Computed example of a mutant assay.
Amino acid sequence: MNGVLSTVTIVASLALALWYLVLAVLNRAPGRAALLAALGLSALVLVVTVAAVVWLATGHRPTDTVVFVGYLITFVAVPPTGFQLARMEPTRWGSVILTVTCLTVPALVLRLQQIASA
């Protein structure tokens, strides 16, 4: 697992979470820019996922491959799911959904790193 790429993903996700939290506190639904940022996070997550798959394909083995792949599937599924749910909820709760999504991503990155390095 790439340390720099993981760090960028964590920082970007936490920055977006803060932005979405401010929107929720201000009682605003996520606008076009907020939704595009969520798509950007999804793209970044996809890049990390490809890097993890390449890491696995080059012979590296985590402590538990099945758990690692399960976390990887969850990791790649969370941002698009949060995006879609936020689009369906045109109230401040859409911003709350994106906040929770963005707070979940760093937890998954850290867990993937733990499994990969242990």
Results as ranks from 00 to 15, higher is better:
residue 2 N to A: 09
residue 2 N to E: 11
residue 4 V to L: 12
residue 4 V to I: 13
residue 4 V to C: 03
residue 5 L to C: 03
residue 5 L to G: 14
residue 10 I to Y: 00
residue 10 I to S: 07
residue 11 V to D: 10
residue 11 V to N: 08
residue 12 A to Y: 01
residue 12 A to I: 01
residue 14 L to F: 01
residue 15 A to M: 11
residue 16 L to W: 07
residue 17 A to N: 03
residue 17 A to F: 01
residue 18 L to R: 12
residue 19 W to L: 14
residue 20 Y to Q: 13
residue 23 L to T: 07
residue 23 L to M: 10
residue 24 A to H: 09
residue 25 V to L: 15
residue 26 L to N: 15
residue 27 N to E: 11
residue 27 N to F: 06
residue 29 A to D: 08
residue 29 A to F: 01
residue 29 A to V: 02
residue 29 A to Q: 11
residue 30 P to N: 09
residue 31 G to Y: 06
residue 32 R to M: 12
residue 32 R to L: 14
residue 34 A to K: 05
residue 36 L to F: 10
residue 37 A to R: 08
residue 39 L to D: 14
residue 43 A to I: 09
residue 43 A to K: 03
residue 44 L to F: 02
residue 45 V to Y: 06
residue 46 L to D: 14
residue 46 L to A: 15
residue 46 L to H: 12
residue 46 L to P: 00
residue 47 V to S: 10
residue 49 T to M: 10
residue 50 V to F: 13
residue 51 A to S: 15
residue 51 A to I: 03
residue 51 A to D: 15
residue 53 V to K: 06
residue 56 L to C: 07
residue 58 T to D: 12
residue 58 T to K: 09
residue 58 T to L: 13
residue 58 T to E: 14
residue 58 T to P: 00
residue 59 G to L: 03
residue 60 H to W: 12
residue 60 H to R: 12
residue 61 R to Y: 01
residue 61 R to Q: 14
residue 64 D to I: 00
residue 66 V to H: 09
residue 68 F to E: 00
residue 68 F to P: 02
residue 68 F to C: 02
residue 70 G to P: 01
residue 70 G to A: 08
residue 72 L to G: 08
residue 72 L to P: 05
residue 74 T to W: 04
residue 74 T to S: 12
residue 75 F to E: 06
residue 77 A to F: 09
residue 77 A to P: 00
residue 78 V to F: 04
residue 78 V to C: 02
residue 80 P to F: 06
residue 80 P to Y: 05
residue 81 T to I: 12
residue 82 G to V: 02
residue 83 F to H: 10
residue 83 F to D: 01
residue 84 Q to Y: 11
residue 84 Q to H: 08
residue 85 L to A: 15
residue 86 A to Q: 04
residue 87 R to L: 13
residue 88 M to K: 13
residue 88 M to W: 11
residue 92 R to P: 00
residue 94 G to C: 06
residue 95 S to M: 02
residue 96 V to M: 07
residue 96 V to W: 04
residue 99 T to V: 08
residue 99 T to Y: 04
residue 101 T to H: 04
residue 102 C to G: 05
residue 102 C to A: 15
residue 103 L to C: 15
residue 107 A to L: 15
residue 110 L to Y: 08
residue 110 L to K: 06
residue 112 L to M: 09
residue 112 L to S: 05
residue 113 Q to A: 13
residue 114 Q to M: 07
residue 115 I to P: 00
residue 118 A to L: 09
